[in-house]
């Protein structure tokens, strides 16, 4: 469990966490980016940009 940087709620993490992955805070809905895995650390994910896609 780590703390949501947006609302402070506890965020549960799964086992196969990857740096760069996005986790949703189930309390406030914020998108959080995994910036480290040992130990797990989250930051606010970047906002959607116009040229994102496939």
């Amino acid at each position: 469990m780590v703390e949501c940087v947006e609302c402070g709620a506890e965020v549960s993490l799964h086992d196969s966490l990857e740096v760069g992955e996005i986790i949703d805070c189930t309390t406030c809905g914020a998108e959080l980016e995994v910036i480290d895995v040992e130990p797990p650390e989250l930051d606010k994910a970047p906002e959607l940009e116009e040229d994102w896609g496939e």
Binding site: S16, E18, V19, G20, E21, I22, E33, V34, A45, P46
Partner: peptide, 10 residues
């Protein structure tokens, strides 16, 4: 090369 790890990248 990535900036976000989606399910595809996982």
């Amino acid at each position: 090369l990535y900036s976000r790890i989606r399910k595809d990248e996982k």
